[in-house]
Simulated assay, not measured.
Amino acid sequence: MAGIDIRHDHDLSMEQARQAVQQVADSLAQRFGVDCDWQGDTLRFNRPGVDGRIALAPRQVHVTASLGFVLSAMRGPIEAEIRRVLAERF
């Protein structure tokens, strides 16, 4: 499985960061049928071919994901989109 591991610094409060991540999760669920749930300050998401998490820290967001065979071929564009959304939201 191909992996994604992105760390992105931010200046938001934890509550603001959580709201931003929840908005991203809502969009993922609507667009791609991704299941999401919070476990403490970590949002876990999955669907066939993807298993990942978005962990919140006071000054950083950490996104990790394992991509299945089909999506691993698209790792570059997926990672670029994640970085774009992080820059936009944080």
Score class of each variant (00 low, 15 high):
21 V>K: 00
12 L>G: 04
73 A>G: 15
56 L>R: 00
60 Q>W: 09
11 D>Q: 13
64 T>K: 07
46 N>Q: 15
17 A>G: 08
88 E>G: 04
53 R>I: 04
42 T>Q: 08
13 S>A: 10
23 Q>S: 13
11 D>A: 14
22 Q>S: 07
70 V>R: 06
77 P>E: 03
72 S>W: 00
24 V>D: 08
48 P>L: 07
82 I>N: 02
88 E>K: 01
23 Q>A: 14
14 M>C: 08
9 D>K: 14
61 V>D: 00
65 A>I: 01
33 G>Y: 01
65 A>S: 12
15 E>G: 05
14 M>Q: 11
79 E>P: 12
69 F>V: 14
51 D>K: 12
69 F>G: 09
65 A>L: 07
27 S>Y: 02
29 A>W: 02
54 I>V: 15
37 D>L: 09
46 N>H: 15
59 R>I: 07
67 L>C: 10
36 C>R: 06
6 I>T: 06
73 A>F: 15
17 A>N: 03
64 T>D: 03
74 M>N: 08
59 R>V: 11
63 V>T: 02
61 V>F: 14
52 G>W: 00
47 R>A: 13
43 L>F: 02
49 G>L: 07
84 R>T: 11
79 E>V: 10
39 Q>I: 10
9 D>Y: 09
9 D>H: 13
24 V>A: 14
68 G>C: 11
3 G>R: 02
76 G>R: 15
1 M>T: 13
40 G>M: 10
61 V>C: 10
60 Q>Y: 07
85 V>N: 01
60 Q>D: 11
88 E>I: 02
61 V>S: 06
77 P>I: 06
85 V>K: 02
74 M>K: 11
86 L>N: 03
50 V>T: 10
65 A>H: 00
35 D>I: 14
77 P>T: 04
86 L>C: 11
72 S>I: 05
89 R>G: 00
6 I>F: 01
72 S>G: 11
30 Q>M: 12
10 H>Q: 07
18 R>N: 05
81 E>K: 15
30 Q>L: 12
55 A>D: 03
64 T>G: 06
82 I>Y: 01
51 D>A: 13
74 M>I: 09
10 H>P: 04
21 V>H: 00
20 A>H: 00
60 Q>S: 15
90 F>M: 11
41 D>V: 06
53 R>G: 08
32 F>S: 10
23 Q>H: 12
24 V>C: 06
23 Q>E: 13
32 F>A: 13
59 R>F: 12
4 I>M: 03
16 Q>W: 03
21 V>S: 00
18 R>A: 11
2 A>D: 05
43 L>M: 15
64 T>I: 13
54 I>G: 01
79 E>A: 13
83 R>C: 10
72 S>M: 10
39 Q>L: 10
87 A>D: 15
51 D>P: 06
32 F>T: 02
12 L>V: 03
23 Q>T: 08
10 H>N: 09
75 R>N: 09
